[in-house]
Design a protein around this nucleic acid. Structure first.
Length: 435
DNA sequence: TCTGGGGTCCTGGGTCGA
DNA sequence: TCTGTCGACCCAGGACCC
């Protein structure tokens, strides 16, 4: 079977792979410092300098391309380094999306506030995220992959899973030969490097891709579990974040090996039936999940953090305009992608960083901006508005493709009606008081 | 002067009809 | 008629990911 003949929307299960006499080989590919690398392709003069990407509130491009004499469009690669904005001059809210290695040496890293980063490395050059350019490169490297290995699952803008099992060369050297070919093809097409891990399943492949960064390849087999996986910290497991990691540490569990040594029932007792069983499974390197090539979106949302905290009453006009704009943008997203939604929700972040969300499920589906605005407005009446707001978001969920809306059945109508009958908390528009 | 934006998934509480 | 159970669905919040 050749790569082009292979046409399946899902990967083989481990059992199928075994019966075909092949070892299941799944790759995880992660682009190296993707956002920063894309920018450095456009501004090669910044190579080797501390650069942070993020913020995005300043129109850096506009400033840079205008040129010192006024309106002339400048070629990016010839813009002098001293013309770039510095982190110390950055004004406004925002976090760092990524930083180049020279910037990381100062302790600057992803998800760090711009203000804190400015203290650590004021001389760093700051560039905004150019999502259009990032998406362009994302499409480019993904199409390069699917030309070689068609069973690929999107995992965000800069990473994918690939099923190597039935691809020519996918079994050679445990997948190393195919991984090398993909790395080379991506570099030739984009000028960017990536790191690849190949393992028996997605879980281990994801961990493996971090072993040898940047521009590396790591091969992991079932029998490597104890030597290569168990010494790692539990936080290396995709799905164990800060909270679960902290709780495990409190229970004296730091490594994946220590997690694997725990009794499943004991883990279920501490983390609940589902999570406990899952933790036990992943600690033993078990993961049957297929590489899924197609998936439908579950929700679409738009949100924005304000330059300054806004008050529901005193900044009513400004908030109203932002709210309407968010609804219209959600509607545009739905229309552009060909979906309609039945559930409309809002998200608020108060000045104390507490979050409130409200949803409303309607009888019928919509992608109309005015309807979304009206439904979201109903949600807004059910949240306390006595504190200042720093973020507002609008979300559409329960999505179906336009033209494929199911008829609401009597049961659904009854439940929708019952949910509306619930007592609702509201706020007096003028005083901000709950009622 | 901390802490973006766009997502997915899970949990637990609640209601309703069967 | 009353009560308990169960599945489906809704909703809010939290954790996690890139």
């Amino acid at each position: 079977m050749t790569a082009t003949e292979f046409d399946s929307s899902e990967t083989q299960t481990p059992a199928q792979a075994a019966s075909s006499g092949k070892r299941r080989r799944i790759a995880h590919l992660d682009m190296d410092a993707f956002f920063a690398s894309v920018e450095l392709l456009r501004y090669p003069q910044l190579k080797g300098l501390p650069v942070v990407i993020g913020g995005g509130r300043r129109k850096v491009d506009e400033l840079l391309l205008r040129g010192p004499d006024g309106t002339a469009e400048r070629e990016r690669r010839f813009i002098p380094v001293e013309d770039f904005p510095l982190l110390k001059d950055y004004v406004g809210r925002g976090v760092i999306t990524t930083a180049t290695y020279p910037a990381r040496q100062f302790g600057v890293g992803s998800a760090m506030g711009m203000m804190k980063a400015a203290k650590l490395c004021p001389q760093a050059i700051v560039l905004p995220v150019d999502f259009d350019e990032v998406r362009r490169f994302s499409r480019l490297f993904k199409s390069t992959i699917t030309e070689i290995a068609p069973v690929m699952q999107d995992r965000g803008v800069d990473e994918v899973y690939i099923d190597f099992t039935d691809v020519p060369g996918g079994q050679r050297e445990g997948g190393r030969v195919l991984a090398r070919l993909i790395q080379k093809s991506i570099f030739e097409r984009t000028g960017l490097t990536c790191s690849i891990g190949v393992a028996p399943n997605r879980l281990l492949a994801k961990m493996a891709s971090e072993f040898n960064k940047p521009n590396g390849i790591s091969i992991v087999y079932e029998e490597d579990l104890q030597s290569k996986i168990w010494p790692l910290n539990v936080r290396k497991i995709n799905g164990i974040g800060p909270k679960a990691g902290e709780k495990l540490a409190r229970l004296g569990i730091e490594t994946i090996g220590q997690l694997a040594a725990q009794d499943e029932q004991w883990l279920m007792g501490h983390f609940g039936k589902s999570t406990g069983a899952w933790m036990h499974r992943v600690a033993w390197g078990r993961d049957d999940s297929p590489v899924v090539t197609e998936s439908e979106p579950v929700s679409m949302s738009r949100e924005t953090t304000f330059d300054r905290d806004l008050h529901a009453v005193r900044d009513r006009a400004e908030l109203g305009a932002i709210f309407t704009d968010l609804c219209m943008r959600v509607a545009e997203d739905l229309q552009r992608k060909g979906y309609v939604a039945r559930t409309i929700g809002i998200k608020l972040r108060y000045d104390d960083f507490k979050i409130a969300t409200r949803d409303h499920t309607a009888y019928s589906y919509t992608a109309d901006g005015a309807t979304i605005r009206q439904l979201a407005g109903q949600c807004l009446k059910r949240v306390p508005l006595d504190k200042r707001l720093r973020l507002l978001g609008v979300r559409a969920s329960t999505l179906v493709r336009r033209g494929e809306e199911p008829e609401p059945d009597p049961q659904t109508r009854a439940v929708a009606a019952s949910s509306r009958r619930r007592p609702q908390v509201g706020v007096d528009k003028d005083t901000g008081q709950l009622f």
